[in-house]
Design a protein around this nucleic acid. Sequence first.
DNA 1: CCTACCGATCGGTAGG
DNA 2: CCTACCGATCGGTAGG
Lengths: 200, 200
Amino acid sequence: MTEPILSKGKRTRQAIEEAAYELFLDQGYSATSMRQIAEQAGIALGGIYNHFAGKEAIFTAVILNQHPYKQILPIALAVEGDDVESFVYNTAQALVDELGYSPDFLKLVFIEVVEFGGKHMAALFQDVFPQILPLLERFQSDKVRAIPPVMLMRVFIGTFIAYYLTEEMLGDVVMPDLQEEAMGHFADIFLHGVLKPKEQ
Amino acid sequence: MTEPILSKGKRTRQAIEEAAYELFLDQGYSATSMRQIAEQAGIALGGIYNHFAGKEAIFTAVILNQHPYKQILPIALAVEGDDVESFVYNTAQALVDELGYSPDFLKLVFIEVVEFGGKHMAALFQDVFPQILPLLERFQSDKVRAIPPVMLMRVFIGTFIAYYLTEEMLGDVVMPDLQEEAMGHFADIFLHGVLKPKEQ
DNA sequence: CCTACCGATCGGTAGG
DNA sequence: CCTACCGATCGGTAGG
């Protein structure tokens, strides 16, 4: 919410990134022209090249600064709940609340996979990995089965991706009424998959 | 394996689709030009328009005919195993064996989401849905917890997508040695999530 | 099914 | 940071 004062140069650069981000989400990378980016950023075409070496440099900046984890991580870190169960359920709830039902927040990664063959992934990963480590601790519990922690985190993240992608694939067409509960089912199945069976 | 005899027109059309399929997987839709498709299909640019109304018509045909489920469904249907456990494990194994570790077979769907906003999804779904119904039966078991069957299928499919997408996202960078076992972990967690706890 | 062409638009740059 | 421009390439078509 804090609006840091940026120099004019920084502000223009920021405007270009935001314009590009919106257009990429909407149309993908190749279908978005430098002219569209310039127009949406309120600048002349030539002006872009004072801030970026070229089109791909814009994408690189965008994916580093607008990557999904930048949205997800703060949400997940702010979630309350001392045990695994409530953490998983609360995170599921919080994510759906903040991100809605659309997989928009995943589209940048899809663009990266489809239009760049994943070649920025390594750089991205270096940036992300240290920051998701704190989340690993929240799975630390003797209720959890013996599963390598990294694998735990991977399946956890994967479960959310799976929810959103299948939402896009068949959410509107089938069972629109089940939508509200769907994320609950994903979280529930994940939890049962990860926890030791309760003796009841 | 059977090579049906096609008329020359059909063969050309098929060659165009296959050329486009390869190029789309490699570059995405927008970055692929009609000239590239023509060249790879061994035809002149103008010739394409005897078979397709335009570029998007090619994509529509490709996604209908080369959609991932066309590869996955036969594999899953051929899997042996009478109980849920062996079905899930064998399917996981068979898919990795046939599709490898790369998410290539998912790229068409990503292109559809990124470059078309998912607008062909409904038509696609009508084609796919009836054919995956038989798979639902293989989850019919009193070992399975009370979960709506459609949701079961959705999480099952989602688990595979999650595996492949996280594989692309961090498979090469981290834990390349764990790769072989990773799918096993996904299947294992899914199974525990879906089955009633065993009294042991 | 090909040749030759259309207008439009692309990413990028020179020069100021 | 803008104006005016570059060569290249785009999807598509006319005509044969």
